[in-house]
C-alpha cells in the first residue's frame, strides 16, 4: 500500500524541479500548436472562409478540400483555421476572467467572512440563477454585440461557479491551524489570501479552470446563435459543428473535423493542467 502514496508524500529529487512528464509535454505542444494556428491560421487558409468552393454539400476529403466541404459547399479546413482564433482566443480570455474574479472574490469572502461573505454569496447566486439566454439577450439589447462583450458575458456567466467552488475550498483551509496562526500574527487579508490560502487550493482551482474552459468553448456556439460576437462568415468551432450537424448521418468530415478540433484543444488543455510540474500545481506538497 504505502509505496503507492510515497510518490506524493516523500518527494524524490526530481519533483523539486520543474519537471514535466511526456503526456504533459505532448499536451503543451498541442495547446501551443492551436495557439499558433489562432495567430497565423487565417494566413494559411487555402480559401476565404465564406467562399463556396464546392457545388456539392458535406463533400468528402479530397486533395483540394482537405477536410471536405460544409453544408453550403465551403471549405471546412479554411473555416477551422479561421475559427481557431475565436475559439482559442475568446474562451481563454473568458475562462481567465471568470476564474480570476471568481477565485479572488471566493477567497476574500472566505477569509473576511461576515457580511461581505453573505453579501457576495447572495449576489453571485442571484447572478447564477438567471438563465444565460435571457442574460445574453439583455446584454445585446443594452450594450450591443462585439467580441469584448461576448468575453465579458461568458466571464460573468462562469464567475459565480468559480466563486462558489473557490469559496468552498477556501473556507475549509481557513479553519486550518496555520491560517489561525497567521491571523493571530496580525497578517493582513491580502497576505492571508496570497500566501496561506491560494497555494493550498491551486490544484483543484486549476482542475476547475480546465473544465470551465471546455464549457465556455461549447457555450460560445450557443451565444453566437443569439448574434453575440462572432459574425458570419466567421464562426467558432462549436458553431461549425452546429451548422453542419445535418452531415452526421453521412459521417461528413464537416461535422467530425470541428469536433476533433474542439476535443484536441480541450483535452490537451486539461491534460496539460493535470500534468503541470508539481511545483506549480501543488505548492503544498
Amino acid at each position: 500500500m504505502a509505496p503507492m502514496f510515497s510518490k506524493g508524500f516523500l518527494p524524490t529529487p526530481r519533483h523539486f524541479g520543474y519537471h514535466m512528464n511526456t503526456v504533459g509535454i505532448c499536451a503543451a505542444a498541442m495547446v501551443c500548436f492551436w495557439a499558433v494556428v489562432a495567430v497565423i491560421g487565417p494566413m494559411l487558409s487555402p480559401y476565404p472562409p465564406g467562399e463556396i468552393v464546392d457545388f456539392d454539400y458535406y463533400g468528402p476529403m479530397s486533395s483540394t478540400l482537405w477536410m471536405g466541404s460544409d453544408y453550403l459547399g465551403r471549405d471546412i479546413f479554411s473555416r477551422i483555421l479561421m475559427g481557431a482564433r475565436y475559439t482559442v482566443g475568446i474562451s481563454l480570455a473568458a475562462v481567465c476572467l471568470a476564474c480570476f474574479s471568481g477565485v479572488v472574490l471566493g477567497m476574500t469572502a472566505a477569509v473576511v467572512g461576515g457580511w461581505l461573505d453573505t453579501g457576495l454569496s447572495r449576489l453571485l447566486d442571484a447572478l447564477n440563477s438567471i438563465p444565460s439566454k435571457l442574460f445574453g439577450l439583455v446584454m445585446v439589447a443594452a450594450i450591443g454585440s462585439s467580441i469584448p462583450v461576448l468575453i465579458v458575458l461568458l466571464g460573468v456567466i462562469y464567475t459565480p461557479g468559480a466563486f462558489r467552488f473557490a469559496r468552498a475550498l477556501a473556507v475549509n483551509i481557513n479553519t486550518m491551524d496555520y491560517v489561525t496562526v497567521a491571523r493571530a500574527r496580525g497578517e493582513r487579508t491580502g497576505y492571508l489570501i496570497a500566501q496561506e490560502i491560494l497555494p493550498n487550493i491551486t490544484g483543484p482551482v486549476l482542475a476547475d479552470l480546465g473544465l470551465r474552459f471546455v464549457f465556455i468553448v461549447l457555450l460560445l456556439s450557443g451565444l453566437s446563435f443569439l448574434g453575440l460576437g462572432v459574425q458570419p462568415p466567421n464562426a467558432d468551432w462549436g458553431s461549425l459543428v452546429r451548422e453542419n450537424i445535418g452531415g452526421l448521418p453521412f459521417g461528413a468530415p464537416a461535422v467530425l473535423m470541428p469536433c476533433l478540433a474542439i476535443a484536441s484543444l480541450t483535452i490537451s488543455v486539461n491534460l496539460l493542467i493535470d500534468n503541470l510540474p508539481v511545483k506549480i500545481r501543488d505548492r503544498s506538497e
Binding site: 463556396i52 454585440s145 453566437s224 446563435f225 459574425q231 458570419p232 462568415p233
Partner: peptide, 16 residues
C-alpha cells in the same frame, strides 16, 4: 463574398 471580389465590403450583422 461577391462583394469582396469587386472591392465592396458588406459587413454582416447577425442578430438574435
Amino acid at each position: 463574398q461577391s462583394g469582396a471580389e469587386i472591392g465592396m465590403k458588406f459587413d454582416i450583422q447577425r442578430v438574435p
